[in-house]
């Protein structure tokens, strides 16, 4: 994947430089006398990050849509599990589910794997080839639809087009 627009590398360098400047500013409470040292470390950190990870294509609009989606789902996820834990009859029906990933291998997939565990009722346990093995708290909930919704948001965030899965989702156990 290439970043759209001119000079993708310049954009990446500027973005990472900005992030590290913000990080230093935040950690030092913006004390002016810290900047001579901070400037050196900001440059070193930017250089190191560029040598460790290549530019990632991402979309500002996708990010702006992902944040409220994530916060809302986190809220629902916390309420859901708190309710299930506290009700005397323990209303859970756990199971393991295969989810056929449409995201290509790489950072978008790792990101999705991480976020799955923070959202309601799902927990990513393993990736086997193109399948995400998900442990669900309630087999009867709309887990596949939730995962597909998350996957399209992640795809929008990373500027990826999703292709329809070649195999249908399968419930095991």
């Amino acid at each position: 994947m290439r970043l759209p627009g001119p000079l993708p590398m310049v954009r990446t360098v500027l973005l990472r430089l900005t992030l590290f400047i913000l990080l230093w500013w935040s950690l030092t409470d913006g004390q002016p006398e810290s900047w001579p040292l901070g400037g050196v470390f900001v440059l070193l950190a930017t250089g190191l990050s560029l040598s460790l990870s290549r530019p990632v294509p991402w979309s500002l609009l996708g990010f702006a849509r992902f944040v409220p989606f994530f916060l809302w789902r986190s809220w629902r996820g916390g309420l859901d599990v708190a309710w299930r834990a506290c009700v005397p009859r323990l209303p859970i029906a756990p199971g393991i589910m295969d989810y056929r990933l449409r995201l290509p291998p790489g950072r978008s997939r790792i990101f999705m794997t991480a976020v799955v565990s923070l959202l309601p009722g799902t927990l990513s346990a393993e990736i086997v080839r193109n399948n995400l093995i998900v442990h669900v708290l309630d087999r009867h909930a709309a887990n596949t639809a939730d995962l597909a919704a998350l996957e399209s948001r992640v795809a929008a965030l990373f500027r990826l087009a999703l292709h329809p899965p070649s195999q249908t989702h399968r419930m095991t156990s």
């Binding site: 996820g77 916390g78 599990v81 708190a82 923070l118 927990l123 442990h135």
Partner: peptide, 11 residues
């Protein structure tokens, strides 16, 4: 694990 990750994220 469900209980820990979700409730702690929100908490």
């Amino acid at each position: 694990l469900h209980a820990l990750t979700k409730a702690d994220n929100l908490g």
